[in-house]
């Protein structure tokens, strides 16, 4: 602490307390079309089980623009359920006054309704939100792309373990077990078998790729676009593959 400033006559003087900066964050939108408590809870739980990495304090925008229910949905209850399942409602968009009033009471930010760039991107994205990088290291607020340090792991990544390469690529020289999870802001290379989950471009880098010697993954995802093992078993199973994103569609190709 600067002792001079503490002794200064004007205690509120000079030292800047903050700086306003424009930030660009990939934000996930939850389009809510219907609300019935039990069904909603069940679907949240199901999605969270399918892709737990997506549900780790991930900020979301609740979107009611396409809401089809006739009754005004109980916003407080919806927010509570989201939080229980690892989603953090940060803002809301809706044209409905009753919903907007609730949002104000709940201190949610209000996003402009209607067509914006954000809505176009998010609404064509798959239902699961962009994954939040795991607890390990807090990602820096700077958005894409990633040219940071590469993280190299020599040992197998076992069931229950999670490895995240913040700001760069992840290289695994051994295999990734079923029940393990690897995440990177950049590309992921696995020189053994990929049996767990692999999420590349977790902060939105759509040019990130996944490479592996044997594709046996539970889930692969690039910038929030994912495929589950059932989508890969027929054609690509246990073969060397690379995965990239083409217009929000994951493309799997032989590695050769």
């Amino acid at each position: 602490m600067d002792s001079k400033s503490q002794n200064a006559e004007l205690p509120f003087a000079s030292t800047a307390q903050f700086r306003l900066k424009a930030g660009l964050f990939p934000l996930t939108q939850l389009d809510i079309s219907h609300y019935e408590r039990d069904a909603f809870t069940e679907q949240l739980a199901q999605k969270a089980a399918e892709a737990p990495a997506f549900f780790q304090h991930t900020p979301v925008v609740l979107n009611f623009d396409t809401f089809e229910g006739t009754l005004t949905p109980p916003l407080g209850e919806i927010c509570g359920l989201c939080r229980e399942h690892g989603l953090m409602p940060a803002a809301l968009r809706s044209g409905d006054d009753a919903i907007l009033t609730q949002a104000t009471d709940l201190a949610l930010a209000i996003m402009p309704a209607g067509k914006t760039k954000v809505s176009e991107v998010a609404s064509t994205a798959p239902p699961a939100p962009d994954p939040a990088p795991a607890k390990e290291e807090a990602p820096s607020p700077e958005p894409l792309p990633s040219a940071g340090p590469t993280k190299v792991v020599n040992t197998p990544i076992r069931s229950g373990q999670q490895v995240y390469a913040a700001g760069g690529d992840l290289i695994v020289l051994s295999s990734v077990s079923a029940g393990a999870e690897v995440l990177a802001d950049g590309n992921i290379h696995v020189y053994g078998a990929l049996r767990g989950r692999a999420l590349a471009g977790v902060r939105g880098d759509t040019s990130a790729r996944i490479f592996c010697q044997s594709l046996e993954a539970e889930l692969v995802s690039i910038a929030g676009n994912f495929k589950l093992d059932e989508d890969m078993r027929a054609e690509h199973w246990k073969a060397p593959r690379q995965i990239h994103l083409d217009e929000q569609t994951l493309v799997i190709q032989p590695l050769s």
């Binding site: 040992t155 990544i157 076992r158 229950g160 079923a178």
Partner: peptide, 13 residues
């Protein structure tokens, strides 16, 4: 085998 894999991970971490 899955549980053993899990234990190996815990051991090494």
């Amino acid at each position: 085998v899955r549980d053993s894999d899990r234990i190996l991970g815990i051991l090494q971490s």
